[in-house]
Design a protein around this nucleic acid. Sequence first.
DNA 1: AAAGGGCTTGACGCTAACGTAAACTGGTGT
DNA 2: ACACCAGTTTACGTTAGCGTCAAGCCCTTT
Lengths: 132, 132
Amino acid sequence: MVVEQPLVSISNLAEEFLITPRTIRYYEEMGLLTPVHHEKMSQRLYGARERARLKLILRGKRLGFSLSEIKEMINLYDIDRTEGLQLERAVAYGEKRLQELEEKIQEFTLLKAELLDYHQQFTELLKKCTEE
Amino acid sequence: MVVEQPLVSISNLAEEFLITPRTIRYYEEMGLLTPVHHEKMSQRLYGARERARLKLILRGKRLGFSLSEIKEMINLYDIDRTEGLQLERAVAYGEKRLQELEEKIQEFTLLKAELLDYHQQFTELLKKCTEE
DNA sequence: AAAGGGCTTGACGCTAACGTAAACTGGTGT
DNA sequence: ACACCAGTTTACGTTAGCGTCAAGCCCTTT
């Protein structure tokens, strides 16, 4: 018994994620999404898998990754794409990415600390100004 | 008594940061850098301040910020640019940026956790394969 | 003086990530 | 039958962030 999938159209998906259909088609063109084509190429339909992928893509974008970087990262999730001895490569690549993520997080933390520092200086300065 | 400043040329600075002179000029064009012009517009010379700024710019880039976002952020450091009542605005803006940074860090951490999860699954799978 | 090295200012080229418009198709209500 | 709407492909336009010449200036070395 197959579970009933809530398949939605491209504009519905676009609306849901606050982007345009064009963007979604572009992601497909770049090989990031692979929607179901309803009976002999009529419409694209998107299910849970594509929604999950799109979510990852948009998060990647917010974090400043390029589409090709994101593509490589989400392909790590595709078990069927990484069969056999490809597994070792996937694992090794995953480790590299994880380390890069760690570095980025540290840089973010650093930047935040600096901004916070200046922020506090400013706040004090402001307090003195208003107190007089 | 003025401190002797170690002013360097554009290509020296470029070499130091592993970028090209063109990139540095572009940042100036965008209002991110303001080097000293040696005696009646002959050459650009870069001191400690520009080096610090460039460092921030490049870090911002690595973290996926646009040049205009970076510009706004480093302008928070410029005391002289934010005089008088502008201080309140600067402080408020700084708080917004700090919160955004916090969110980004959390997203990064989330992404890392997911990748790590899949990574461990893969590693186990790989172990079982090689053990047979 | 001539040649070279490093700097300068244009100006055009290029890629990524879409925006946007045109023209076509396919189902649906009236 | 006709209009309409939502989807499709194709293709050209646009912006950011530089790369890559071209042509000229200044200073030093030969």
